[in-house]
């Protein structure tokens, strides 16, 4: 370790550099502050919500074996639904908070929302990452934020399904609240997109499985990259600091 310069990036200004390309590191300092506290807080709270939502959501579609006794003595299924609705509403609030933060946070905070699909260079780097994961590249490139493939995956198999889950989930919750409720005013349009309530249920459940698959791959790759690549992954989302294991270019 030759030079250890701790460069803590100050949040960039309003709307500044909203369109952000993944920055390949030219000559990286060995330690860079990447994920600010609000991003890390959102990440772990969102993860907790998703775990709660997937478990309860699965049980809502495939309920536990029936219990006996008097109906008035139990509220098991009601409580499962309560947890699902509470976690879902918390997730929506957190998502709004995260989107707002994308305008105030550093350049990495809006990487999730706007992959540069129009950039040839970016697609080239996506391809490089595909080759790295297929064992065709010897050395991975270094990135301060997400690598381009990760950015593409975050957007297409995480953010879009999540927004779809929020829309369909909000619509299904609105059905319970009633067609004259604010929830229905906000989410009633979903029924014009997907048709009847039954279809919306099916789409909601399929989207859940996309998120489950994403979570598996996301967890695996984060741990693998921590071990195999030249930068820290898991600890970065805890402390915010990205460490580079070598200072070669």
């Amino acid at each position: 370790m030759a030079t250890t310069s701790e460069t803590k990036k100050a949040p960039s200004g309003f709307f500044a550099k909203v369109i952000h390309h993944s920055t390949e590191v030219e000559s990286p300092a060995s330690k860079i502050y990447v994920y600010e506290a609000p991003v890390r807080f959102w990440h772990w709270m969102n993860a907790l919500c998703i775990v709660a939502l997937v478990v309860t959501g699965y049980l809502i579609g495939k309920p536990l074996p029936s219990i006996g006794g008097e109906a008035s003595d139990h509220f098991l299924f009601g409580n499962i639904r309560l947890i699902h609705f509470a976690a879902g509403q918390l997730l929506i609030v957190l998502l709004v908070y995260r989107i707002v933060w994308a305008f105030f946070g550093n350049e990495h905070s809006h990487q999730l929302f706007l992959p540069p699909f129009w950039s040839r260079k970016w697609w080239g780097e996506v391809w490089h990452e595909v080759r790295w994961y297929s064992f065709l590249e010897k050395t991975p490139k270094k990135y301060i934020g997400h690598n381009p493939l990760a950015q593409l995956a975050m957007f297409t198999v995480f953010l879009l399904p999540l927004l779809n889950l929020v829309a369909t989930g909000g619509a299904l919750y609105a059905e319970g609240e009633g067609i004259d409720s604010y929830w229905y005013m906000a989410f009633g349009w979903v029924f014009s997109v997907y048709g009847d309530s039954f279809n919306v249920h099916t789409v909601h459940r399929l989207s859940m499985w996309v998120i489950v698959c994403f979570t598996m791959i996301h967890t695996y790759l984060a741990i693998r990259e921590d071990i195999m690549s030249r930068q820290s992954l898991v600890s970065t989302m805890i402390s915010g600091w990205r460490y580079f294991k070598d200072d070669k270019e």
């Binding site: 579609g61 495939k62 994961y133 064992f135 099916t202 459940r205 399929l206 859940m208 499985w209 996309v210 489950v212 698959c213 598996m216 791959i217 695996y220 693998r224 071990i227 195999m228």
Partner: peptide, 27 residues
């Protein structure tokens, strides 16, 4: 939806296991 979802989870799980093995070998 559940059969498709669990099928996808099985495929992803198998792929992760295979990729882990290949990664360990390469390392």
């Amino acid at each position: 939806a559940d059969r498709i979802g669990l099928g996808a989870v099985a495929v992803v799980g198998t792929a992760i296991a295979a990729h882990t093995a290949a990664s360990a070998l390469q390392r």
